[in-house]
């Protein structure tokens, strides 16, 4: 076996491997076209506008309509954490907290109606004052209006995302509300949620 022949066969092997690899890469590339093909550059808008579309687009599937070839996830790290409401130090927020304090004291002293009025004022000053919603819920539960209390508790729950201690208090309040409404299943669920925190 001459040196040239050996080299040639090696070269041929190499070429074969390269060819297979190339074919393989082409197949892979085609199958994941959004990844490897350059993004189609959107055509500049022409004036007058382009003629009406032929309308031969895909029919949306049953369930959620998708559009795989047109949407690309840029960042794989999805964020499904609700954004907690930042306690700002705005003058409105601080003033609103004053009113919450007055409202809370009124409720504790048994002046529930007066307390409700103050807490409603607190929300007028700062729409994201979660404490005001919480105490409103407490007040309406005291007035034996659980369905009304529930709406405020839901709002407080929404605004307390990310604050475990406060959220636990709200879950327990929601448990009490559901118990008052006679819905034991829901009450148990909220007890479980509170226990989990």
């Amino acid at each position: 076996m001459s040196f040239t022949k050996v080299n040639l066969s090696i070269w041929l092997r190499y070429l074969g491997v390269l060819g297979v690899t190339a074919v393989f890469l082409i197949i892979v590339g085609c199958s994941t076209s959004p990844l490897y093909t350059p993004q189609p550059v959107p055509q500049p808008r022409k004036y007058p506008y382009p003629p009406a579309s032929t309308g031969k687009g895909p029919t949306p599937e049953k369930g959620i309509a998708t559009n795989r070839e047109n949407v690309v996830i840029v960042s794989p790290e999805e964020s499904n954490q609700p954004s907690p409401v930042v306690d700002d130090s705005s003058p409105q927020h601080m003033a609103s907290l004053e009113l919450v304090d007055v409202g809370r004291r009124n409720i504790e002293a048994g002046n529930v109606d007066q307390g409700i009025s103050m807490l409603e004022r607190a929300i007028s000053l700062d729409a994201y004052n979660r404490r005001a919603y919480y105490y409103l819920s407490v007040a309406w539960l005291k007035k034996n209006q659980p369905s009304r209390a529930l709406e405020f508790a839901k709002k407080a729950e929404l605004l307390c995302q990310g604050r475990k201690r406060e959220l636990k208090k709200i879950y327990l309040l929601e448990r009490d509300i559901y118990l008052r409404m006679g819905n034991k299943d829901k009450a148990d669920m909220y007890q479980w949620k509170a226990d989990k925190l």
Binding site: V74, P82, Y128, Q161
Partner: peptide, 17 residues
């Protein structure tokens, strides 16, 4: 204030064609 993102929402960065 910025609108609050509630539970049950997923934020993803996308590019659309």
């Amino acid at each position: 204030r910025p609108f609050v993102m509630p539970p049950g929402v997923v934020k993803i960065r996308v590019r659309v064609n």
